[in-house]
């Protein structure tokens, strides 16, 4: 077991290192902006003194690396700064009711997790089932239709799928709601009802990818000599799948799921915008358009962390599911 613990420790360390480098890349990208933030926040009309004061407030008078490390330190302690929009608001009106970025992001992060989680909950079992069936009955009518359906879904932009669903399930047949403007304090049932269409959109997008990958890896697996051996032992088709194919399919399936959950992270951005869902994706797009740097930085860090965490989990699960590593010679 020693070697497996060592491999996992290595992966974990690599994950942390990647996250550190990613944070540096984000910091450098953002600081590649011409001019400075203080000017950007205050607008052209601001006096020189006010801008200088703001610059001092933001710590922009400090050296580059010091700023990076203080930013990094703040992130680790959960301090994501204050958004420019808030500051601008404060400096113009003199108010001091500042909402920090962390407070702004937290409820939206929860909302996004709901959406992604709901979508994943439908998409994962659905696509694994369709993928396995398509692999078992490959080149059948079912396989062909599933393949064409999946290609169509992959080829459509997320917003197209979203609007088609709105058209058919919210406008023509008012089963669900065309917008998902959830408010704090709603019940679980209401939340799921609001989330139905955005989650369905994401499901369709992700299922297509996941189903194709599952099909490919299962077909690959079914061609292995040990599957033929199992059939030549007179084992029932069901048992061949459950006992012989599935344990070996774990690693590829874990990777397929991780890859697609990671894809969900990107998918939520467009879907949240279409359904005006108050999630982190919509916040990100808004702040990108308003160039609200502290919010942008924070959102990108959150997206990247989620992405890295997913891949890391998949990596570790894959290692754990490998009999060669679990039972070394």
């Amino acid at each position: 077991m020693g070697s497996i613990a060592k491999i996992i420790a290595q992966r974990l360390a690599l994950g942390v290192l990647t996250l550190l480098i990613v944070s540096f890349v984000i910091f450098v990208s953002v600081n590649a902006l011409p001019g400075d933030f203080a000017q950007a926040i205050m607008g052209q009309g601001a006096t020189e003194e006010a801008v200088t004061a703001m610059r001092k407030d933001l710590g922009l008078d400090q050296p580059y690396f010091q700023r990076y490390f203080s930013w990094l330190g703040n992130i680790i302690t959960g301090d994501l700064g204050i958004s420019f929009a808030q500051m601008n608001f404060a400096s113009n009106l003199g108010g001091d009711q500042l909402i920090s970025v962390a407070d702004q992001i937290y409820p939206r992060f929860i909302n996004t997790m709901w959406l992604a989680g709901f979508a994943a909950l439908i998409a994962v079992p659905l696509s694994l089932t369709i993928g396995v069936l398509a692999a078992l009955y490959r080149n059948s009518m079912f396989d062909r239709i599933a393949n064409i359906g999946a290609l169509t879904s992959i080829s459509s932009p997320e917003f197209f799928i979203a609007y088609i669903l709105v058209l058919f399930l919210a406008v023509l047949n008012p089963v669900f709601l065309p917008v998902a403007e959830v408010t704090p304090g709603i019940t679980l049932g209401e939340r799921l009802y609001f989330l139905a269409l955005p989650a369905l959109t994401l499901t369709l997008v992700v299922t297509a990818h996941m189903m194709r990958m599952t099909r490919a890896s299962i077909i690959n697996l079914l061609a292995s000599p040990y599957i033929e051996m199992a059939r030549l032992k007179g084992v029932s088709p069901m048992r061949v799948i459950v006992k012989h194919a599935l344990p070996n399919a774990l690693a590829p399936i874990i990777n397929v799921i991780a890859l697609n959950l990671a894809y969900l992270i990107t998918g939520v951005v467009v879907v949240e915008v279409v359904f005006t869902y108050p999630g982190i994706g919509q916040l990100f797009v808004d702040s990108v358009i308003n160039r609200d740097i502290p919010v942008i930085q924070a959102c990108v860090m959150i997206f990247a962390s989620a992405y890295i965490l997913l891949n890391l989990t998949a990596d570790i699960l894959t290692i754990l599911s490998n009999p060669k590593l679990r039972h070394p010679k």
């Binding site: 953002v30 992270i265 951005v269 467009v270 997206f303 992405y307």
Partner: peptide, 13 residues
């Protein structure tokens, strides 16, 4: 490690 669409939006901004 940074999701593509997110990174693109950041850089475009």
């Amino acid at each position: 490690a940074i999701p593509a669409l997110i990174f693109q939006l950041l850089l475009l901004s």
